[in-house]
Design a protein around this nucleic acid. Structure first.
Lengths: 145, 145
DNA sequence: TTAAGTGCAAAGGCTTTGCAGCATA
DNA sequence: TATGCTGCAAAGCCTTTGCACTTAA
């Protein structure tokens, strides 16, 4: 697949090439959490000629444009997701590796409290829980661990 | 410096070699947050012959023994710190890069709430705030950003 | 023609591993 | 002698970069 631009479409002033369109769609379809390698694998199956460099370059661009968010979920490689309107945080299961998103109003309260008490100005919050998901807890005999 | 063991001391059944003693002391002196490269640099100045491999091997060991905790603070490399009795979280300033620890009882409450609501069993909490520290806020004209 | 995006391959960080030598018991 | 730790160098991931080619305006 060549570098074809579609109807002179753009994203934030940058040409929306076929590769960019494909990558954005795949990230969207991943419904949240995908790393560069897996994204490259899926992109390759739709466009044999796409390169890993293009994946990384565009992940960077998407981040700069605020379209995509990078998350470090305690793993070796980073995960990427379409930026959601609402902030949410992540839980990763130590057994099955599943990533679950959650949201809780206490987080906002916590940010406010810490800003007041410490004098910080917080521009980004990343909360990461590790543990066992409901299914794995049950499978392990409800031991709670 | 050779691989000399001191008075047959041990840590958790493992021999406390001169290298391990030095590394633990340096991590302690770093008062919290140091990465492998910086730890190696400081260790080299005290023991020219120490190798980076030893630094990494022992950071792993210390983690397994629960002596040291690995933190991913939004940077490229991981940070290590002596494991504190009390849990605490981190704030990183986007201007000066300073790492500030803080603790707030709302975090425990949040963990409890999320466990109840989602059915998770949380074994590890990592909260990471990014923003501007009090000094940098002031230096930037109190704009709050 | 010009500016920008791409593929390819090489290079860059950070981290791990294989191996021979040395230290302790 | 047996086990384990070390230094060294090589290899391993993940990610970035240089370069020549291609595309669209």
């Amino acid at each position: 697949m060549r570098n074809i631009r579609n109807h002179s479409n753009e994203i934030a002033g940058y040409p929306l090439t076929a590769q960019r369109r494909l990558l954005l769609q795949l990230i969207r379809d991943a419904a949240g959490h995908i790393d560069a390698k897996e994204l490259y694998r899926r992109a390759s199956s739709k466009d044999e000629s796409i390169s890993l460099a293009t994946v990384y370059r565009n992940l960077r661009l998407f981040q700069e444009l605020g379209l995509v968010e990078e998350r470090r979920l305690g793993q070796l490689s980073h995960h990427y997701e379409i930026r959601h309107p609402a902030e949410h945080q992540h839980f990763v299961c130590r057994d099955c590796g599943k990533v679950i998103e959650f949201q809780n109003p206490l987080i906002d309260k916590l940010v406010g409290t810490v800003q007041d008490e410490q004098g910080f100005s917080v521009t980004r919050t990343e909360l990461y829980f590790e543990g066992y998901c409901p299914e794995c807890r049950t499978a392990n005999g409800e031991s709670g661990r």
